[in-house]
Simulated scan of single mutants.
Amino acid sequence: MEQQYQWRRLNGDVIVNDIEDEVRSVVLTEKEKGNTLKVCIGTDSQVKGIETEIATVIVFIRKGKGGFMYIRNETIIQKMGIKERMLLEVAKSIEVAYALCNIFTMYGVDMEVHADINTNPSFKSNDALKEAMGYIQGMGFAFKAKPEAFASSSCANKIVH
């Protein structure tokens, strides 16, 4: 059975609609205002004792006019290695991207999936880079890793710390 996690805005306001309905409404509103949008989806996690806290974000960028984001938190209790945790983060982002991609395609909104994985081989997270990139691109999504992956390494990162 699929668990439902509550989406919210950065200010804490809970999203009562399905995230798909909320995103469709936001895209239409922003388009009516003449804004050009780009969306970046990313996930980060933080191990805290036996728990792993996970934050997934949907970042909307209004070209030249700032942006806003939606946040979903969840906590799991499962021991994982760094590579497994990085790929779990990517899977969480892809789950959201897949649910929303038809909306973005319909309204001509560019979307990227950001992975909190370092491109520098001296970092442990780099072990998951090839698999993550293949997973994301194999699903047909644009891929960004550190240092360009701000949705995961900056936005989601601030939520889990």
Rank of each mutant, 00 (worst) to 15 (best):
Met106Trp: 04
Glu20Asn: 07
Thr29Ile: 10
Val16Pro: 03
Asn126Trp: 05
Ile58His: 01
Arg9Cys: 12
Lys144Gly: 00
Ile77Ala: 12
Gly64Met: 07
Gln78Asp: 10
Asn118Asp: 15
Arg24Asn: 15
Glu32Thr: 12
Ile76Ser: 09
Thr105Ile: 15
Arg72Phe: 02
Glu22Phe: 08
His161Phe: 13
Lys33Asp: 12
Ala156Tyr: 00
Arg9Trp: 07
Lys144Val: 01
Ile41Gln: 02
Cys155Asn: 02
Gln4Phe: 08
Ser153Cys: 11
Leu10Gln: 14
Lys158His: 14
Glu32Gln: 13
Gln137Met: 06
Thr56Trp: 00
Ser154Pro: 02
Leu129Ile: 08
Asp116Gln: 02
Thr29Gly: 09
Ser122Phe: 10
Gln3His: 12
Phe141Tyr: 05
Val16Ala: 14
Thr36Met: 09
Asp127Thr: 14
Glu112Cys: 10
Gly49Ile: 11
Lys83Trp: 08
Gln3Asn: 15
Glu51Asn: 06
Asn11Ser: 14
Ile117Lys: 00
Gln137Thr: 07
Pro147Val: 03
Leu87Trp: 03
Ser152Tyr: 00
Gly81Arg: 09
Gly64Asn: 13
Lys79Glu: 13
Gly140Pro: 03
Thr105Arg: 12
Asn120Gln: 09
Lys33Val: 04
Tyr135Leu: 06
Glu74Cys: 09
Met69Val: 09
Pro121Tyr: 09
Phe104Cys: 15
Ala115Gly: 08
Glu53Met: 13
Ile94Gln: 01
Cys40Leu: 06
Ser153Tyr: 02
Val39Tyr: 01
Ala128Tyr: 02
Val160Ala: 04
Ile71Ala: 02
Asp13Pro: 03
Ala151Glu: 00
Trp7Lys: 05
Asp44Met: 02
Asp21Cys: 12
Met86Ile: 10
Ala91Gln: 13
Glu53Ile: 07
Val23Arg: 02
Val39Asn: 11
